[in-house]
């Protein structure tokens, strides 16, 4: 019974990570639209800002679940991004600023790519963990 919960939890973590990956891909698509001048920066920022906080909360909840269910290695894996998000929240710089967007576009895209890479690594780790749980059983 306990193992089944663990299995479901691992699958849930995997799916949550997929959602984070997709949201990041979507952000990147918005940025490329902006560069191609097919979207207005005001609309683009309003759109994006609506998703940024949920993303941070989602990631924080997932990490907290790892901690409380005793998966310390997975939690530790997530600490760097948690720290980055905590920094963004503490400096009140989560929201993208439409007035500055063209100046920061390069930097923001790099950050998004880095985050995407990070989520990919997480995806592999969660997958490995899932398989390991099954095999171990």
């Amino acid at each position: 019974m306990l193992d089944l919960t663990a299995l479901f939890f691992n699958i849930f973590a995997l799916l949550a990570d997929c959602a984070l990956i997709f949201s990041n891909v979507y952000f990147l698509a918005l940025f490329s639209d902006l560069e191609a001048d097919t979207i207005n920066p005001i609309d683009m920022c309003r759109h994006l800002n609506a998703f940024l906080l949920p993303e941070i909360i989602g990631h924080a909840v997932l990490s907290a679940l790892f901690l409380f269910t005793g998966r310390f290695w997975l939690f530790l894996l997530n600490v760097p991004l948690l720290a980055w998000h905590a920094y963004k929240v503490s400096t009140k710089s989560i929201r993208l600023d439409a007035t500055q967007i063209y100046r920061t576009i390069g930097k923001e895209t790099k950050i998004l790519f880095a985050k995407l890479g990070f989520y990919m690594v997480c995806f592999c780790a969660y997958l490995f963990y899932l398989i390991w749980t099954i095999v171990d059983e």
Binding site: D37, N40, P41, A98
Partner: peptide
């Protein structure tokens, strides 16, 4: 490379 003044940059 960059612009200075009072305006809103609407596209690049």
């Amino acid at each position: 490379e960059s612009q200075y003044g009072n305006f809103f940059v609407r596209s690049t």
